[in-house]
């Protein structure tokens, strides 16, 4: 860029807008001059102090995001039985609405009455507390009201949270995001791909037209484990050979499995299967392995 001579350059004149009153340079808010005190230049002195606080908060914040992953439960399912809990900053309202004089036939009081008065007062505080006095200990009414609402906030939130924890234990249910994290951990230990990557590749049925397929239908296993062994009601039997061997499967047919599955041996018998058929069925199920099919 040619270094043109500065002097010849035409001086840029900033044309003021006639309607805008020309301000007298910087806006010097009256307060500072009234309080000479030890004031400090903002840039770079005070800004540096302020940003030291910013840096500390940022480090804490990032450590928090790294150590505590954001919770994620299971996909929304309207028929799921979940104890509904709003976010923590709504708990006080949530708990407050459970009280008799805030619900039932007093619901108007509960939803409009008191909250509107409370938040309305907070919104219009400068017009309600109009004295010149600013020190809180010299403004008993305003400060008392605020302390009262702070106390009730803390009490209601705490009460709602402990009640929720109590209900969880009573129902013996674990919050979903913890369940999901445990499952993800188990999957990772068992070496399965993490959830959300490829859903489990479909394990194919090993020799599909084996006569055992008829036993499987006759003995009514099909009604819980599905026509394609993918499970309907009962768990999927695809790749069951990886989990249980023949004897274990025979035992399961004879005695049932951890309380959920009843014993199916008698059902098989009166469906006309012989003991040898059931044995063959168990053997065929034991062959259902994930990598066996090539």
């Amino acid at each position: 860029m040619a270094h043109n001579d500065k002097s010849k350059q035409e001086k840029v004149v900033f044309v003021g807008d006639s309607r805008v009153r020309r301000g007298n340079g910087f806006v010097t808010p009256p307060d500072y001059t009234a309080y000479p005190g030890k004031s400090e230049a903002f840039i770079p002195n005070f800004l540096l102090k302020e940003w030291m606080v910013g840096v500390v908060v940022l480090v804490g914040f990032l450590v928090l995001t790294i150590s505590e992953p954001a919770p994620l439960g299971f996909p929304a399912d309207p028929s799921a039985s979940v104890i509904p809990m709003p976010d923590w900053y709504f708990l006080f309202l949530y708990q407050y609405l459970k009280y008799p004089y805030a619900s039932g036939n007093y619901v108007i009081l509960g939803t409009i009455g008191i909250p509107t008065v409370a938040f309305g007062a907070l919104l219009l505080a400068p017009f309600l507390d109009t004295s010149k006095e600013r020190r809180f200990y010299k403004r008993p009414i305003a400060s008392a009201l605020m302390f009262l609402s702070l106390a009730s906030l803390v009490y209601l939130t705490n009460f709602a949270w402990t009640h929720y924890k109590h209900e969880l234990e009573k129902a013996g249910v674990e919050p979903e995001h913890i369940q999901r994290e445990e499952q993800a951990l188990e999957n990772r230990l068992a070496g399965l791909p993490p959830a959300g990557s490829e859903p489990q590749a479909e394990i194919a049925i090993v020799d599909k037209d084996d006569p055992a397929m008829e036993f499987y239908t006759k003995a009514t296993c099909i009604s819980c484990h599905g026509a394609d062994l993918k499970g309907s009601g009962g768990p999927s039997l695809r790749g069951i050979g990886d989990k249980h061997d023949k004897e274990a499967i025979l035992a399961i047919i004879k005695e049932g499995y951890n309380g959920k599955m009843p014993e199916m041996y008698t059902a098989a018998m009166n469906a006309g299967l012989t003991d040898e058929d059931v044995d063959h069925l168990a053997e065929w199920l034991a062959k259902q392995k994930a990598e066996a099919v090539e």
């Binding site: 770079p44 540096l48 940003w51 030291m52 910013g54 940022l58």
Partner: peptide, 20 residues
């Protein structure tokens, strides 16, 4: 002193911007 403050201020800003 002013230079030092400006440099540290630059450093803090850089960290905050980068960290986020």
């Amino acid at each position: 002193r002013r230079q030092f403050l400006t440099y540290t201020l630059g450093g803090a800003t850089a960290f905050m911007v980068a960290g986020v």
